[in-house]
Design a protein around this nucleic acid. Structure first.
Lengths: 105, 105
DNA sequence: ATTTCATGCAACGTTCTGGTTGCACGACGG
DNA sequence: CCGTCGTGCAACCAGAACGTTGCATGAAAT
């Protein structure tokens, strides 16, 4: 999922979808200087990561955001930050004694 | 930066660094089934993305987390979610009238 | 029915990425 | 000093990712 977010095109695509929910592929392709197929692939990638959802509307395929996934990503990041905090606190505790981190792993 | 997070190895590396700050490259390589050089590259990638910082300690190079960057990533995600919320509200406003989103773009 | 529009699929080429090997260098311990 | 440990750098390879072209299909407009 972070891999899906890790591409410039996909990230901007995601932002665009977030702004105007329900945009078609052709619409999403405008002004990017790449072909529609390329965008289609990126969109597939985003959908595959669960970040967007495909909605068929007549002859066009529209995409809508799935905020739940974004939330999930944020939580992952938060978890890592939190580990950092805990590590810091543990470190501080160790410094109190003068033994050192012999069994740190 | 999301690209840096988008790799399984790097993500776990980041988590490990978060747990035991100040781990050396060789230490970080243990039990991964890949060579030290590979890990070195990943670490360079993380450092390049500003997610970790290199700290030279004698003959070994240790890595420490930079929580600020994680925070920044979380904010990006939050911004996109937020856009979604706003879009939703705008959409609702349109439905109130009975015209529909004809000039959505 | 025909034309046009929006897509989907598959094959292909090029560029990145992740991983490996081999070698050189600086730091630590005896 | 000498041997060992932990790194850094460069060359190289295989597989994945990005992007393109060409063609086929279903829906909307005329």
């Amino acid at each position: 999922m972070f891999a899906a977010l890790g591409d410039e095109t996909r990230l901007s695509l995601l932002a665009l979808i977030g702004q105007g929910s329900g945009l078609s592929i052709t619409r999403l392709t405008r002004g990017r200087g790449v072909t529609r197929q390329s965008i289609t692939k990126h969109l597939g990638c985003l959908a595959d990561a669960g970040l967007v959802r495909r909605v068929r509307r007549g002859r066009e395929t529209c995409f809508v955001l799935r905020p739940e996934s974004l939330e999930e990503a944020r939580r992952s990041l938060e978890r890592i930050s939190r580990q950092w905090d805990e590590a810091l606190e543990r470190l501080r505790a160790m410094v109190e004694e003068d033994d050192g981190p012999s069994r740190a792993g």
